[in-house]
Design a protein around this nucleic acid. Structure first.
Lengths: 210, 210
DNA sequence: TTATGATAGTGCTATAATTAACATATCTAT
DNA sequence: ATAGATATGTTAATTATAGCACTATCATAA
């Protein structure tokens, strides 16, 4: 057990491992080796062991890992042993897609509030959540002890929404607007930029040159 | 000019720089320094210069970079000097959101075809693109010389769709299904896993422990 | 024309991440 | 019991990435 500085790449892989283990578990498989996990998710066996070694010893030498146990351990590491209350701000096309995204619920992310500015949307039900006007954001989010905010508003409004989420004491923000946002250092911020992803692809497609 | 092995992190940053430069250019600013770019996007000035150095010399010592020029150079590097034909497979909530995502069009990604299995969707118009049944995928995609496929279908169908895209000779695939996909090495594949992003956040929120 | 200030480009250093190698532990079969 | 096969955990080596500091170059103004 090394501990202390864990690369972000490791966290991302752990998340992928856990999802793969869920799949493997569903097939009724009891034990799995680092090599099989590696094969399944497309990394090296050493990488799998190294990633796990940051957090402890979860396997049995000569045998492998118990699928259920390892999965549980990883979920615990990722902070997924209990549910998270999530607020979604912005109910455009992307927001709507996110609101019904199964992958969130499956992993314990519960969307407990949804906000939009559009009066024609406010009051509507999305699943069993009522859409509210953004003016209520701080109050509702704080009351619910919501810890994660998802920002899916047009770029020009993103910073303002983020500021209000910070005021409402969320701990982490997932931003889908293609802008650089400023948050206090204690707030975790991640940006998902869809166009960037395509551009990495086009670079690579064109990259015989480099 | 160093060339040859460019880190992916560099490509991602270049994409961010270029977007920032677009913004700066709109404000009518002519010249910008590495320090100002760095400030604007939240990296170090050395990093900005290093990233650009992979591809050439674009600035003037003692002065900085011409905003328009640098922007154009970066777009060229990323392969964005001409448009890309993109096909979208899967018109669920996410697919629908992607189909109308402005960020794609702005950067020259043109969705030229959309496929779904649901007969109630086939035939509908999304913008000026007619939704087609997946059975036509190979034919249409190949005919259009579409080079990029976006996969937004449920996880169990993703591999099959990817196989068909490969058969249809796309060069790159952006996958939104949370599964590990197999493609031949010459095909560029990127995965966008929305839940993973949230899980990196929760880990960090919980990570006082580590 | 020359001195000064500013800033890009670059080589070197330090840090981080990945891969490889190995020593240790477990299970199975004889 | 013991030997052999297997697979983890860990240390070492390699590779990749980022940061720093120096050098070269340009613009400006005296």
């Amino acid at each position: 057990m090394k501990t202390l500085k864990v690369p972000e790449a490791t966290i991302i892989r752990l998340s992928v491992y856990s999802r793969y283990l869920t799949e493997v578990d569903r097939k009724g498989i009891i034990t799995i080796s680092s090599g099989e996990i590696a094969e399944g998710v497309g990394v090296s066996p050493a990488q799998v062991r190294k990633d796990l070694a940051y957090f402890g010893e979860f396997g049995t030498r000569g045998v492998g890992y118990n699928v259920k146990d390892l999965r549980q351990h990883i979920l615990k590491i990722l902070g997924l042993s209990s549910d998270w209350s999530v607020t979604l701000v912005g109910l455009g096309n992307l927001g709507l897609a996110l609101s019904s995204f199964k992958g969130f619920m499956e992993r314990g992310f519960i969307i407990t509030s949804i906000f939009d500015v559009d009066p024609s949307k406010v009051g509507n039900m999305i699943g069993n959540v009522k859409v509210m006007g953004v003016e209520q954001l701080e109050e509702v989010v704080q009351q619910n002890c919501t810890q994660i905010g998802i920002v899916a508003v047009p770029a020009p409004f993103a910073q303002e929404i983020v500021d209000r989420l910070v005021k409402a004491k969320v701990k982490a923000i997932l931003n889908f607007s293609p802008v650089v946002l400023n948050v206090p250092p204690e707030i975790e911020l991640r940006n998902v930029d869809l166009a960037v992803n395509l551009e990495v692809l086009t670079f690579n497609v064109c990259a015989q040159r480099y």
